[in-house]
Write a protein that binds this DNA or RNA. Sequence first.
DNA 1: CTAGGGTTAG
Length: 632
Amino acid sequence: MGVFIVAVTNTNPFPPNLNLNSKNGGSHDRKQLISRLHKCRNINQLAQIQAKMIRNGHEQDPFLLFEVLRLCSNWNSIDYASKIFEHIKNPNVFLYTALIDGHISSGSCLHGIRLYSRMVDESIKSDPYVIASVLKACGFELALKEGRVVHGSALKMQLDSNRSVRLRLMEFYGRCGAFKDAQQVFDEMPQGDVVASTIMLSCCIIHGLIDKAFAIFTQVSARDTVCWTAMIDGFVRNGEMNRALRLFMKMQGEAVRPNEVTVVCVLSACSQLGALELGRWVHSYVGKYKIKLNHFVGSALISMYSRCGSLEEAQEVFVEMTDRDVITYNSMIVGLAMHGKSREAIELFQAMVKQGLRPSSITFVGVLNACSHGGLVDLGFKIFDSMVKDYNIEPQIEHYGCMVDLISRMGHLEEACNFIRRMKVAPDHIVWGSLLNACKIHGNLKLGVQVAKILVDGGIADSGTYILLSNVLASSGKWEEAAMVRAKMRHSGILKEPGCSSIEVKNEIHEFLLGDLRHPQKEEIYKKLDKLNIILRSEGYSPATEEVLQDIEEGEKEWALAIHSERLAICYGLITTEPGSTIRVMKNLRVCNDCHSMIKLIAKITKRKIVVRDRNRFHHFEDGSCSCGDYW
DNA sequence: CTAGGGTTAG
């Protein structure tokens, strides 16, 4: 980008009073056009109004064109707006600003910056609005150099005292990580500006500076809904769900009313924690406090219910929402796929297409995931091919990952390797991990070791890789080598993510680690586990000791297995909830084979439905079998 | 005659 030149005036060769129409008729037409533009709701109506503008000789009227561009911007019709703009003979600063804003809201900030550059080249004088807009674009684009130039122009034109300009300057520097500059602008602003503080704390959150953000938050005297929401969202984004929920409670204690955005953030926290009861409470809150069930809130609810294990309630919300967009469908499709309802997910995808909605790349992640969980190889390929062919969506690494999972889990390991070779993007640890997992399932030691080597040599091996490799080796009885792999993992400083399961009882989340002894009711829990073990044994259950990762003595192996965290969580559920009620457990890792077969039996003998969310998907255990059909 | 303060889903 070149250096911006500060312009003096805007010379328009068509003075507005040189109208071809008669004086009265022209201005009457114009008034009518303005009122029609204000009522305009879609592109088709807009095109009609434009036709009339041309017929009445108003096609270059800057005021009318400004309204037109703003409408396009609101509807995210940036291509249409750009086309109109190219036909404007002498666009003024208002029209430039409108189009720059359009580019920003459609996510192409770089185009916005270029457009500003063009405006400067055309010697059109800047005003505070356009400066604020282009600074916003620079902030999103992390265009530090360009933004500094804009800042320089603003100083020259003495526009830097304008509040909007200052807010945007702060946002721009903050987003770019230039905190010293951001702080300087912030310090020069009047004290107690809640908006300025919200911008500052949001910028800190973007850069993971959560404590700095919280420090700013606590210093704001008059915190409003948006400020509270920004902070709650910050905790959620930084993985601190409990702090987010505590802050939400505190917000209500201070009688600040949540809005739609707040609810979406809190629901996201519930989803991640698996806090169904709390999520239900937030849902009832939506009804009680007239929070609009808009697309954001609807999707967040659907997603919360699916991710908390209650697909039925997710579907109820989906049905209740008559006005659905792509993301509403995506949430439901992803939910169905997660729960192993492959056919339903694919049918919903087809219904969505039939409705005239254009699937997005996330839609395909959901649908391909459904194929993968359902073992639907042919259909998976068909959908994968149609992505590019019918929807012009280039597959991303996530889509390739689903395909490799789908192909290799069916045992077509060779084909999976060929597929990886043909991929247009470099395979990541998830793609190789899927293949490695399939090697374990299908007992292909040779390929498994090769794949693991690729991961380790490529420096993309995480703890999961090492664990999987050690599992592959252990399941072939190669205990020594398995132990060596684990030693190597410790050596390279990679820690095993500790297995952790949680269960919500009476609005409280109880967490359990492997062999956890911290819970106040640990004695009852372990007593329950012992009792279950005796019954299970009489039912013919014998622990699958080869699943244990370490090469240890038989007796020890069984003990180590018996206390996988999900077992503790389930036992706690059994002793604290009503007989016959569903038990829902969330786990951060995948369920092992042995736990899987044990939980099937527990469900049978206790006559309970047990729902387990693992790293990848849901398992619904009922009467001795699991919804995944032992295929996960 | 033209004009947003900040926070949002998969």
